Amino acid sequence: MNLTISGHHLDVTPSIRDYVQNKLERITRHFDQVIATHVILAIDNLTEKEKRQKAEINIQVPGKTLHLESVAQDLYAAIDLLMDRLDRQVVKHKTIVRSHAHEGHKRMPEGGATATA
């Protein structure tokens, strides 16, 4: 899995990088076919009193790209919220992929004759 973590108006410290990597381990436990992951962490200054911490993620899995974002007052809270939502999306995608698997043809009853009720 290729992992890219970038910051917008923010320096990505090693502690933030480790925190994101530890949270992403949960995702790879559920679905190990992740191709690439791009995390964007940002600080948006709307007013002097209100600072919004924003976390976005683009995750590529075979056949689909998932995009999620979350906003909170604390960056770690935004990351937690993002990973919870991403976990649900990945599990949902995994069940969809499994449920669309082709089933084999049903076997005819032994003897080659159709059963009559």
Rank of each mutant, 00 (worst) to 15 (best):
L3P: 04
T4M: 05
T4P: 01
T4N: 03
S6A: 10
G7K: 05
H8A: 06
H8N: 15
D11M: 10
D11A: 10
V12R: 04
T13S: 07
T13R: 05
S15T: 08
R17C: 03
Q21K: 13
Q21M: 09
Q21H: 13
K23E: 00
R26Q: 09
I27T: 00
I27G: 00
T28Q: 13
T28W: 10
R29T: 06
R29E: 07
H30P: 06
H30Q: 14
D32Y: 14
D32A: 10
V34F: 03
A36T: 08
T37M: 09
V39M: 02
I40M: 06
I40V: 08
L41K: 02
L41P: 02
A42E: 15
D44N: 13
D44F: 10
D44G: 10
N45F: 15
N45S: 12
L46P: 13
E48K: 15
E48N: 15
E48P: 13
E48Y: 15
K49S: 15
E50W: 09
Q53Y: 08
I57C: 02
I57A: 06
I59D: 03
I59H: 00
Q60D: 08
V61Y: 02
P62C: 11
K64C: 15
T65Y: 07
T65A: 13
L66H: 06
L66F: 06
L68N: 03
L68R: 06
D74L: 07
L75H: 05
Y76D: 04
A77N: 02
I79M: 02
I79Q: 03
L81Y: 07
L81E: 12
L86P: 00
L86E: 01
L86N: 03
R88I: 05
Q89M: 02
K92W: 05
T95I: 11
I96D: 11
I96G: 05
A101D: 09
H102W: 07
H102L: 13
E103H: 06
G104M: 08
K106E: 11
K106Q: 12
P109L: 14
E110Y: 13
A113E: 14
T114Y: 12
T114C: 13
T114L: 09
A115D: 09
